[in-house]
Every structure is written in structure tokens, then in C-alpha cells.
Design a protein around this nucleic acid. Structure first.
Lengths: 262, 262
DNA sequence: TCTCGTGCTCCCACTCAGCGGAAGGACCAC
DNA sequence: GTGGTCCTTCCGCTGAGTGGGAGCACGAGA
């Protein structure tokens, strides 16, 4: 190959994939040059790769000339496991909680050191909620995150404790204090937050526990949480815990039944 | 290259993509050899490509050695346009309809000659519903499909009329009769089906109409439908139409406001 | 324990697919 | 008209991709 100035990935496939990497939540629509720039690919090469990706349906071209993720990738994405299994099982329960409370309900799993939101039912009241399906938020700043962190392996906990980012002025950034909170979560089986990720929002969350086989170990497979505006937190959060627990148990039981589940 | 027996796609990228094509709803988990077989790729080549796809996160390997679609593709898929815009706007309205009726609510768009289900809220009662988010069903056999077909360009209508598949014994397969039904849909603004896709299920659907600009043409952007068990059809379907219409109008108005929309 | 079968991984020399600079075109703004 | 941005096409060089084959890991049956 000529030159070789393009540092990182040498294989064709990795380049094609790097092109896809140019897309994210804040960059869902890109021009050819933007893609080339963001993926650090020579313009011509990007052009050719994009041509192939578009022909296949991974990307599609809008009337205005920009590219966006195509339907084929959407189709494929829906086959991904976390969500296929878990979401399908959990969906009716999320709806139940939503119908009973009319608040924003979340289902999240731990993905490394972040909470990955796999499903969400949005509430009536306008609570400043940052999370969307597919978004990742820091474990220490959200309700579902604390639940997931409390159940995570020690090395993950340590890693998170070592790098607590401040999201708002209420975020818990002292390792010792968070460690105490986690112990409390393990004891009570529920986590609370108040304006730690976004001002004006408070939350509770509980673990979704799955017991595999007879007398098997209980594994925290996900976390179920609910978000309410701060002014209703004191009154509502305590009475919401039992609602979440019922739903979480339902989901856990259903998951245990699905032999497809890991 | 040696041989050249592999007929179709010659480029590396197209091969990598063909590997991904091996996955679909009925084949969400595949072994290396299965992928190689289904994508008509030599085992060794498939192995290498899969290795790269896995390293990037397009695929992931399960403990049992099988491969499945990875989280990265799920992330990317969520950026696809159909759903990003439309779903986000429509979601609260679907929930409203669901809360009011507790039935299965669907949102679909036309994708070529099929109805593509972009969102769905499942109901309480066990209705035999085939559709899932991401699935495609024939336009002539489902409620949302008839609505979308009634608004489709003539060439699409003709194409569909020419190839009416029989899904159940109640499916409308006579072109003339379907044409009459479509005229009726255009006149009344709603479509009904009864056991035409799956026995035991009936449905109504209405169009989601968007008016672009002042005095612009009205465009059918999607269809909103509801499914109930047959035994409740006579009683419930008529009174559900107004509910759907309210929601559909709300979605349409919201879409018109979003300047991002096409 | 020794087959045999199945499915996966590693190796390596040949060669063709990918590469990307350069040039040309389309479109817009000033 | 002139300068600018962005996209598309062209083409000769070369190293990345290819895939048969060998070898390994595991499990079932004798």
C-alpha cells in the first residue's frame, strides 16, 4: 500500500467498521467529508467504503446528500441478545409499572463501568431525564447504576470508586461515602438518588435477580428504576419501592424460565 | 486469488457484510461453521472476518462458542432514522392508547411492499400477534398495512394486488375486493381486519398524517393500529377508532413541528 | 483406552482487491 | 467571474486478503 500514514487499523474490514464508528448519538447524520475526517480515513477510501456500506444497507443516503444509519443495521441491532431476551420479557412489567405510576420507568444492565439503558417508558410529567434507550450513564450517579454497582465484581467497584465524576453538585464523589451507600443498597435491596445526575430528578431502583437451576446462585441480571420530579420524591419514592420489587421479581422469575437466558 | 469458486461478492467488505447477513430472526445464534455455510464463505475466511467483527463489537461470542449480534451494532441500529424521529415522537401516544385500552398497539411504516413495525406496546390479553418490533408483514393482511397501502403510490398498489399471499383462510386474496377495501379505507380513514393474518385476532388502524408547511400536501407517514381478540372485535373495534384518531393526530402534529422530519 | 467425527484455529505463499493521490465536476457565495 | 467546498471518477502499484491444508480440542461410541 502507498504511504501508510493512516496509523491505526490496517485491514479493510477494520476501516469499514471505523467508518461506522463515525456515527454516534450526536452525529447521526454526516456528510462524506465529515465521515472521512471523523474516522481518519482518506476521503477517497471513505467514499468507496461508504459506497459499499450503502449498497448493502448499513448506511443510507438522504436527499440532502448526508448519510445516516440504514434500516438493515437497525434490523440486525434488534437481534442483539441483551435486549432480545431481557427486553421482551421485561416489557410488559415496565408497562405495568408505568400504568400504575405514570412515571418514567427504566431498565438497565451493567456494561463495563457504565449503566446501559436497554428499555424505557417515558412518564407524563416533564422530568429532566437524560437517559434514552441505548445511552450509557455513570454507575455512581443514577439509581439503576448504584444497584448494578452494588452487585458488581470487586474490581469493577474499585475501578469506579477510583474515578467518580461530578455530574451535578449533588453527585456523590467521595469513594468512602459511595462505598457506604453500596453497602446500604445490598442490605435494603434498593438504591435512591436525588439530583445526582440531573437537577430536578430523583430516583429509586431495585435489582432484577435471576436464580438459575435448583438452589443455584442468585445473579443480578438488570436493574429496574423509576424517576420522579424532586418535589414528589419524599412522598412518592418510598411507596414506589414495593411496586418496583413486584415487577422485578416477575421479570426475574420469567427470565429464569427462559432457558435461552445465558 | 486462488480458485474463485465463491460466486457473488468479491470485495472484502461485501464478504464481511455477507457474514452479518447470516443472522436473522430465526438464526440469532450461530456457530462458525453455520455462518460460513449460510454466507457461502470458505470456513477459514469466515473465521478471519468474524474475528475482526468480534474485535470491533459487531458480533460477540457466547460462552458456548456461538456468535451473536454484539452491542455495538445494537447501539448503531438505534441511530437509524425511521425509528429515531418517529418512535420518539410517537412513543408517549402509544402509551396513552395502551393505558386507555390495555390492548396491543402498533406503529408501522411502509417499507417497499411490506409493513415495517417500528414500535409496539403489548397488551394484557393473549392475542396471537405475529408482529414484533422490526418485523415485516404483508400489507394486504394487516390493519396498519391496509392503511399504508391505501396511501401508497399506484405502482406499489398494483404490485401488491398482483401477488396477494394467503396467510389464513380469511385473508383477502381477490385483487378486486382488496381494491374496494382500499377505496373504503381512503373514504372512512380507517381499516379493519379480522383473522386475515392470524386466527383469533382482529384489528383496526388509522393513518398518521403529516402536513408539511402552510397549506402543504398531507402525507401519510405511518399507521397506528390496535389488535384485539376476535371475540371482542364487534363490540370494541368501532369505539377504538376515535381513540386511535386522537393519538394519530397528536403524532402527526408533533411530527410536523419537528423540522428534522424529512 | 483407542478410534472416529465434528468443529475450530493457525499457517503461509500467491495474487488480485484495495489503496489513495490527482484531476475533474457540481454547486454555492461573494 | 473567481474562489471555495464538497463529491466523484480514474488508474497503476503493492501488500492485505485469501483459502487449502495441517493440526488441535473435545466428545461419542466401540
Amino acid at each position: 500500500m502507498a504511504g501508510g500514514s493512516t496509523g491505526a487499523g490496517r485491514s479493510v474490514t477494520s476501516r469499514a467498521l471505523r467508518v461506522l464508528d463515525a456515527f454516534d448519538v450526536d452525529h447521526a447524520r454526516l456528510t462524506l467529508s465529515e465521515i472521512a475526517g471523523r474516522s481518519d480515513t482518506p476521503l477517497t477510501t471513505a467514499h468507496r467504503l461508504i459506497g459499499e456500506l450503502t449498497a448493502w444497507g448499513a448506511l443510507s443516503r438522504r436527499p440532502d446528500g448526508r448519510y445516516e444509519i440504514g434500516r438493515k443495521l437497525w434490523d440486525l441491532g434488534l437481534l442483539a441478545p441483551v435486549q432480545a431476551e431481557l427486553r421482551q420479557v421485561a416489557s410488559p412489567f415496565l408497562l405495568d409499572v408505568h400504568t400504575a405510576t405514570r412515571d418514567t420507568v427504566h431498565l438497565a444492565v451493567r456494561d463495563g463501568a457504565t449503566a446501559l439503558y436497554v428499555d424505557r417508558v417515558s412518564g407524563r410529567e416533564s422530568v429532566p431525564v437524560v437517559s434514552q434507550v441505548g445511552s450509557r450513564l455513570p454507575l455512581h450517579a443514577v439509581g439503576v447504576g448504584k444497584v448494578l454497582l452494588a452487585a458488581a465484581p470487586d474490581d469493577v467497584v474499585e475501578q469506579v470508586l477510583r474515578s467518580l465524576t461530578r455530574e451535578t453538585r449533588h453527585t456523590v464523589v467521595e469513594p468512602a461515602r459511595l462505598a457506604r451507600e453500596l453497602a446500604e443498597v445490598r442490605r435494603t435491596g434498593a438504591a435512591r438518588t436525588s439530583e445526582e445526575m440531573s437537577l430536578g430528578a430523583a430516583s429509586v431502583a431495585v435489582p432484577v435477580t435471576v436464580v438459575r437451576g435448583a438452589g443455584g446462585r442468585a445473579v443480578v441480571a438488570a436493574a429496574l428504576g423509576i424517576v420522579v420530579p424532586t418535589h414528589r420524591a419524599e412522598r412518592d419514592l418510598p411507596r414506589l419501592v414495593p411496586v418496583l420489587e413486584v415487577a422485578a421479581r416477575g421479570i426475574g422469575r420469567e427470565l429464569a424460565r427462559t432457558d435461552e437466558f445465558r
